[in-house]
Design a protein around this nucleic acid. Structure first.
Lengths: 223, 223, 223, 223
DNA sequence: AATGAATGAGGATTCATTCAT
DNA sequence: TATGAATGAATCCTCATTCAT
């Protein structure tokens, strides 16, 4: 991916920014955050290192931007699907929907897992505030949609469920992506217990959570 | 904590090893893994840096040993409590029991959260295998106890629940311990959504999981 | 200070150049040479970075031009005052005159102090030659005026005195403007010795130099 | 200069430290502070880069230590010579003595010239305080010796004279060591005025200062 | 003439680990 | 067993300058 001309208009600059993020994402699919150097990203994008810093203030902000973009895309897709099920959805419908939305988003899931460890390091208050404010809106909106689809959810439980899912993604991602040595160990027959498939576990747990929330609602009403 | 003499007998060496781990744990309570240097641990323990490497092959193995020790202690306590409830326990009983077992174990929870990111990096196959084998036994045993306490759990679901809890600890730990900048942002009134209390969330989610599992079992039987 | 139109005539271009230098001087009053970026100057002047390079070949040449302008102004003022005292002046008269001429020229003094370290780095031979030729003429002329005012000065000693003053400005400027840490240290009562007031020291030393030169002349004549 | 063995005793460490400073000084004789990298010093000394940081906390502290050592040596030599002239010395005697003391100390003079610009940047308060305290003692002691040699100096004028000399060294060093382009320009016949010989100017100015101080004293007494 | 996007060189520093003593 | 001196890899970012538009 080599640069052909300079980005002059706002639109061109947005495109270049998107290109740089695409390159970063591609690199991140192969390489861990720490091992993925700005130099490598610049080289792969066919620009000078300094150019990256015209578009992003730091490595952390670059990946935060990447995260935000992927997150927005994911929420958008999720929201569309939820809108479609507004009248009510079965557990399995929601789980399937979540499954579909995560399909092909492995790198995004890894990004989620490192966000809190890495990205929040070298980010200024303003950026952090903007990010969290955006995130909050997404969570509240999608949370409300979930509540619309799943009548047993009380107000606020939709957003709360999303947070739980977030935690599960982080946790299972860590469990599902061991170091090479550990991966090797886990190949032993006995170790089946620890051979975790991220989406499978994630969706399975989500299903149980949904059942639990439904059960709680029912139990609450019956009282 | 200053070392006076050299450890000659096996027993003395075990004691020194335990001392070193105690110092490491004390340091880790205050300081992040990355910021806690081997030099600092050695200084605090009153030994030379090289001495640490007589007892642990690397920083990672040192903290892995620490993890194993804390884990064993936690499982031991949990098992004792579960044994006591063998005949059957309510959801809330199990949640309370878990709550009790985690009380005062903040550093342990932080250790869990970094285990997969950091500890498994620089560890050789033999150590990793030994660790995972131990872990597996713990998980299976305690999983079985859970199944004994909670009759709605099928075989294997006890261990599986422990894995889910593990994932939740990792995930909520990441969400609950933001960087200082983010912590500052989260002080805003609007951001209540993101101000997460680790144990509260953990136990709340565990309760829902238990309800979900119970519901699923009931539903399964009714079919 | 925002630019409205493009400079077309030679006169307009000279005015813009002067504007840019004025902005640079204003910036330099607050900020050290290294910390004062071309980007900041351009922004403050309301032009693009590239525009600066239409008027000055490099940052160094820009500040060299600034220096030349300030220097010419200073010499002009000094010359006028010296002309007034042509018939003869007391030590204190000359010192006072110098004091008056330096009043309000703090940034100029700082410029003198960094000239040789920074400015002469990235300047081509032609510019350097022109600069030094100009400087020589100023020094010779003002030196001659000094000799006219102070009869004890032999031919050449006026110019030589100006060089000595130059050296003193550089030296005392360095001593008088310590880093913040050192400034803090110098607040200690014991450190009064090192708390240097630039003009005070400069003028005091000049006075002694003048006395020394007078003494030497007298001694020479008496022989 | 290659390292043979590891420095274990305090004495060996002092020797290694001295060796490193010697290498740094040799490098500084050829290369400017900025262009002299820690890597180059380490390579030349035959040690790893990290080793430099065992002996000096930063590049700045390394050169500050170098400065202190050279300064102490210079003061020592100067003091010895002044002690010898305690009963009284002629102007020319003091100038000669200063001349002798500076002979072969070109790099030291360059170090003086950059001290305030560079060294005080990355130095903590404690180090700065220690340095300034030491310097103060040197200045006061040697100042007192000067006063003993030159009866026309009032109390405090010895130390003050040393500060003036310090300023002159800085200033003339800057004037005497132009960039290569400027050096080239100064080769023009007309430019003799600016071809400055550091020690010559320094000593010449010192002589005039001494005469001025003597004259002032005489004048003061005659009143 | 003016713009401003793109360039790219350049270096101090930390700290887990080793190994001579 | 204990020491602690020595090792050395590895990377982000700034900013003067250029040049396509």
């Amino acid at each position: 991916m080599a640069v052909t001309s300079r980005a002059v208009t706002h639109e061109q600059k947005q495109m270049r920014r998107a290109d740089l993020l695409k390159v970063a994402m591609a690199g991140f699919a192969d390489t861990s955050y720490d091992d993925l150097s700005m130099a490598a990203i610049a080289a792969e994008a066919g620009v000078a290192k300094g150019t990256l810093y015209l578009y992003f203030r730091s490595k952390e902000e670059m990946f935060l931007a990447l995260y935000e973009e992927e997150l927005a895309r994911w929420f958008q897709e999720l929201d569309a699907a939820l809108e479609h099920n507004r009248r009510g959805a079965s557990f399995d419908g929601i789980v399937q929907l979540m499954s579909d939305s995560l399909h092909g988003r492995a790198a995004f899931l890894r990004l989620i897992a490192i966000l809190h460890t890495v990205l929040e390091r070298n980010v200024d208050r303003v950026t952090a505030l903007r990010f969290k404010t955006n995130l909050r809106e997404h969570v509240l909106r999608t949370g409300a949609l979930l509540e619309a689809c799943l009548p047993f959810l009380k107000t606020g439980q939709g957003a709360d469920l999303l947070l739980k899912i977030n935690a599960l993604v982080i946790g299972f991602e860590h469990l599902a992506e061991p170091s090479s040595v550990v991966r090797d160990v886990l190949r032993e027959p006995d170790m089946a217990l620890f051979r975790i498939n991220l989406t499978e576990q994630l969706l399975g747990t989500l299903r149980i959570l949904l059942m639990g929330l439904a059960y709680e609602a029912k139990y609450r009403n019956e009282r």
